[in-house]
Every structure is written in C-alpha cells, then in structure tokens.
Design a binder for these strands. Structure first.
Length: 374
RNA sequence: GCUGCGAUGGUCUAGUGGUUUAUGAUGGUGGGUUGUGGUCCCGCCGACCCGAGUUCGAUUCUCGGUCGCGGCC
C-alpha cells in the first residue's frame, strides 16, 4: 500500500495525504528542520499551533549527541523530543558536502569527522539506516552522495551510481532489521544527478525499480539556477509513477517553494526560513525585508500588514528592529515565529487554491506581490 | 593661573616625513545564506582639530590656538 494518495490535481500541482505511523500529513507541506532535536527559537507546541504536522531531524547528529542509548532509554526520538506527529530523519548525507564533516568517501560509506570530539567515524549506508531505525522516525532517508555544485558531469554520474548502490544496501538493511522501534517506518531514497536531466532520470528510475516508499530529489539549493531545479523536477516526475511522493530536499525560500509546487512537488524541508529570521530577513506578503535596516528604526507598522501572527498583532517593526540590533534573544524568537507563520500560511493557501482549482491564479498574485528574487 | 598628556571616518582605534590604496572594529549601505551550527560571509561608503613654521614634501616634526582628561597653585 502506498504511503501517499493524491487528492486533487491542478495542472502540475496537486494536494494529497502522506500516511505515516504518527498520522496523516496534508500535502504539499514544508518541514522545519530540527537538526539537534529542536527547531531553533520555537517550541514544538508552537509549531503544531502554526499547523506544522511534520518536522525533520538529523540522524547523524542525533547519533553523535546525545547518542543512541540516551534516545533508546527515552523511548525513541519522538518521545525524547516530545513530538507525537510525523517525523522524518535525514541520514546525514548532506553533511558530505560540508568541510567540517567530510573526511573521506568510498564505496564503503563515508568517514566523518565528529565535530564534537574530532574523532573519525565511518557511516556506511547500513549504519545510516540502523541509526534511523533506532531513532524510530516515521520516514528514514537513505544515505546518498551529493557532489558539490559545479562538479563535472562525470562526478555527478559517479555520485548517482554510488547513491544507487548505497540505496540498495540501505533497503536491505532496513527490511532485514527486526528490531525497528517504529514497525511502520518508511524508507525514502534520494535521486542525485545535479542539473543533468538524463542522469537524474536514470538515477530516479533505478531507485524506483529497487523499490522505496518514495524517491526524493536531493542536491538543490546549493548554487544551481532556480529554473534548472524546476525543469529537473518536471523531468524526473516524467519517469516516475504519478503517485510518487515528490520530496524536494533542502528548499527553501517562498518563491522556490511555490514554484516547485507548481511543478508537482509535495514536500520540502529547509533551514532557510529559520536562518533568515536569525539574520533579520523577514518574509512579508510584499517581499522580504531586512529588519536590521535603519529605515525601520521608527517604523511603527507591523512586519507585515497582512499578517495575523501574534508578532505582527503586538509588535512594531521599530521594536523588532531595536531587539534585533541589541541582540535580544527575543528578536530571534519573534522573527522565527513570524517567518514560520508565513510559510505555514503560504502552504495552507497553496492547498486550498489547488483544491479549488485556483492555484495558478493564487500563485500569480503571490509572486506579483512578493516580487524580488527569493 | 601654571603644567603634563591627548586630538585620525558617526563612534572606538592602528600607524607613518614621501608610491596620492592611512589600519582594524563598529556603524551606514548593497548582496549572500536553503537535507548541522554560530549575532555569520562578501562588496561598497566614511577620517588624519585649526593656524603658522621647518622641509622639495607634514596626518607625522616645531610653535601657537581650540577642545578633552589629569596634576599643582
């Protein structure tokens, strides 16, 4: 039985339901990233109030700290972090491209530098899955290999082939493990291939034939042109069944999100909205603003006149500018809340407009008002 | 009143008798940030207190002035 059912189509965009062991999630949706078991500057109960029914944590980081035994004793990652809705875990494959982590990579797997104690640690595809089995997330992601942006076609081909080989091993490890604490844990694979359509398509098809609960797309948001991402999404979807749950990893910004939805994407995760909030870049219905700018020093309007979040109802740009410039912790808390309220509201409206067959109109107006590049 | 020390972007500073690119931080401004993390990263803007003297040439040395800080009467 498929974990995903489509409810309504509107051109390439669609709504649906993702079924996990911790409930159904309406698609398209965005997952805030809780790398270390917490989304920065906001708590789980606020996330639920905002309408986020699914978040993603990082298996590799959880494995390093606090370690699997602590999480086992807590009864799994859901209980440990007090989140009883749907939960993804990322394998840690994305850290491959980060200097702080990468040590060596071979067909065996990846050797990482432990950033906490500088020790060297091998994570094989099997181990990446077993860690996630122990954490008990609802969706485990295969270990994949992502080259840095701008590598040669050969590098993308090699990494796609390696990703497929690793995915096979991930699947075998996953289905032969009798001790999963979440018996209905899903396993998604990740198609690589950069902006090379043929590599992406072959990689996605190969993964689909191996058989996963979904084939996701990775390796975006690292420097490629936005239009390339959309065309890759479209071409990968051509070779996969219509009901493949289309998870675009690592995205992103309001415009990227809505444009990806219009190309058939169902799910996203990214640090972008939270990180932007920490750096003062605030999403509004009229585009993003930088609350640190002097022009907001005596601006007593809310962040966004069209926003009903508690921050916009209670605080002015002037006050938030002041908190931000004086490094008050509350600045990050308020700004994070607003950005996530914005993203949550965006997806609610996206789902409504698709169900009403009005998505293109909604998108046109949104993009027109939002303006800007991201 | 006498005397000592000081005066460099908006603010705090480094440094120098001479390639007309005078540091750095902060600030202002523009851009960036996307499956770890940080109040983060990149570009640009912005100054040698005033006057006289010495010198080929002074932000730099000398004298005077102004202002600031300290000491003494």
């Amino acid at each position: 039985m498929s974990c995903f059912e489509i409810i309504s189509n509107d051109s390439f965009a669609r709504t649906g339901l993702l079924n996990t062991a911790h409930g159904k999630v309406m698609t398209p949706f965005f997952m805030p990233v809780a790398t270390k078991g917490a989304v920065k500057n906001i708590n789980n109960f606020q996330l639920q109030e905002l309408g986020f029914d699914c978040i993603i944590s990082n298996a590799f980081i959880s494995y390093l700290k606090p370690g699997l035994s602590v999480i086992d004793n807590a009864g799994g990652l859901h209980k440990f972090m007090s989140w009883d809705k749907s939960l993804f875990t990322d394998s840690g494959g994305f850290q491959l491209i980060l200097d702080q982590f990468i040590h060596n990579i071979s067909n065996k797997g990846v050797t990482f530098k432990n950033p906490f104690d500088k020790s060297i640690e091998l994570v094989s595809p099997e181990k990446a899955v077993l860690i996630q089995n122990s954490l008990g997330s609802d969706v485990a992601m295969c270990l994949d290999h992502q080259p840095l942006f701008g590598k040669s076609r050969t590098d993308y081909l090699d990494s796609a082939i390696r990703t497929i080989e690793w995915a096979k091993r991930c699947k075998e490890a996953h289905y032969s493990n009798e001790n999963k604490i979440n018996k209905n844990q899903l396993l998604f694979s990740i198609a690589q291939g950069g902006i090379h359509k043929d590599i992406r398509q072959k990689c996605a098809l190969a993964l689909h034939k191996i058989g996963f609960d979904a084939v996701a797309l990775g390796g975006f948001g690292i420097g490629e042109a936005q239009k390339d991402m959309y065309s890759i999404i479209r071409s990968v979807k051509k070779v996969l069944p219509e009901n493949n749950f289309t998870y675009i990893m690592g995205i992103g910004s309001p415009l990227e999100l809505i444009n990806a939805v219009s190309n058939g994407a169902d799910c996203f995760d990214s640090n972008y909205p939270m990180r932007m909030a920490r750096h003062g870049k605030i999403f509004t219905s009229n585009g993003s603003i930088d609350i640190g700018k002097t022009k907001f020093k005596s601006d007593f309007n809310p962040l966004d006149n069209n926003c009903n979040c508690f921050v916009c109802k209670n605080y002015s740009r002037s006050y938030l500018h002041h908190l931000f410039k004086t490094y008050e912790q509350n600045a990050h808390i308020f700004l994070t809340y607003h950005n996530l309220f914005f993203i949550s509201g965006l997806f609610k409206n996206i789902r409504i407009s698709i169900n009403e067959n009005n998505f293109n109109n909604f998108k046109k107006n949104f993009v027109l008002n939002y303006g800007g590049k991201k």
